[in-house]
């Protein structure tokens, strides 16, 4: 038999009594997010990493660049031959791994946030333009998006880095060139949906300007999905940066980056596993925390995407 969807009765029949106070969707979403313990915990971890990046000089026990060849490949504090002043041990040049890992958060967080912001802004503008103006604007942007989606991400980034040369700014550029595509697609789809809504028609019927319609009527409705997709992508960006640094195309030595730290420890994996492992764990922790937090954001801000 064809008997599937059961409509749950909406309890909003008389909202009068239940919620007396004005409450925006944003406030309701935030409340939902804060009720999600896993997501809030993960967000706290992400903030912890951010704080670590900002206050690295205050937290790090040692100078991340100071090498002491007597401590070459010194094991972590709890192992034989280790000492608690260098709790996670030292690398091949005798530098403190903990201090370098703390400083490494600076590179990851900076690039993650910078690429995310650039991509979100560019993607939002392109998506709004394509979705609202339609016509040729949409055709052109859609083609560019299609072409960019056709390139494998890592290979594109490697190629660009090879051409532009290393440097923090170049990494941001190389990643953002493709990264804006996803926010753009999300914003375009949301804009297309929003511009067909009667409330946009109502604003036009009242003689509202295009600027008003785009910024006041449509934009607020596309912001939530934009935030959701952007935070979610930040995890990927951090992995991409680590990959580039691992390949030696990212931040140049001696600046500590988790990716290059993992690469540095590669050859000592058997004898001195700690050199690669701890920066690897950092990547894992941060990426996992971002993913869980952004999932929470998605559940709270964009209930349509749930499951």
């Amino acid at each position: 038999m064809t008997a599937g969807a059961v409509e749950t009765p909406r309890p909003d029949a008389a909202p009068e009594a239940a919620r007396a106070r004005a409450q925006s969707i944003l406030a309701a979403n935030l409340r939902d997010f804060l009720a999600n313990r896993l997501a809030v915990g993960s967000a706290a971890v992400v903030l912890l990493f951010a704080a670590m990046a900002v206050f690295a000089p205050l937290i790090a026990p040692h100078d991340p660049y100071a090498s002491d060849l007597f401590r070459r490949l010194q094991p972590p504090g709890w192992m034989e031959g280790g000492e608690w002043a260098y709790p996670l041990g030292c690398d091949a040049l005798g530098r403190d791994i903990l201090s370098r890992a703390i400083y490494g958060a600076r590179v990851s967080m900076t690039i993650g946030v910078a690429v995310m912001l650039v991509a979100a802004v560019v993607g939002m503008l392109a998506g709004l333009a394509a979705g609202y103006r339609r016509g040729m604007t949409d055709v052109v942007i859609a083609r560019v998006v299609d072409v960019l989606l056709g390139f494998p991400y890592l290979i594109l980034a490697i190629g660009l880095m090879a051409v532009m040369g290393p440097g923090l700014g170049n990494i941001v550029l190389a990643l953002a060139i493709k990264e804006w595509v996803l926010p753009c697609r999300v914003v375009r789809a949301e804009t297309l949906a929003a511009r067909e809504m009667d409330y946009v028609e109502a604003a036009r019927a009242l003689g509202a300007s295009q600027r008003h319609i785009m910024l006041r009527e449509i934009l607020p409705n596309v912001l939530s999905p934009l935030v959701v997709v952007s935070t979610f992508r930040m995890a990927t960006i951090i992995i991409m940066e680590a990959s580039l640094s691992f390949l030696g195309l990212g931040v140049q030595p001696p600046v500590p980056s988790w990716g290059s730290m993992v690469a540095d420890g590669r050859q000592f994996l058997i004898g001195a596993w700690w050199v690669s492992t701890f920066p690897g764990v950092m990547i894992l922790l941060l990426v996992l925390a971002i993913n869980l937090a952004s999932q929470g954001l998605r559940d709270a801000f964009d209930p349509r995407l749930r499951r």
Binding site: M197, D198, L206
Partner: peptide, 28 residues
Amino acid sequence: RRRMQIVFQDPYASLNPRRTVEQIVGLG
């Protein structure tokens, strides 16, 4: 436009969910 207006069918799609009643009604 001030002299000719429209009332819509769908009470859900016709009001912007991100704007207050004051903003919606006061727009004109």
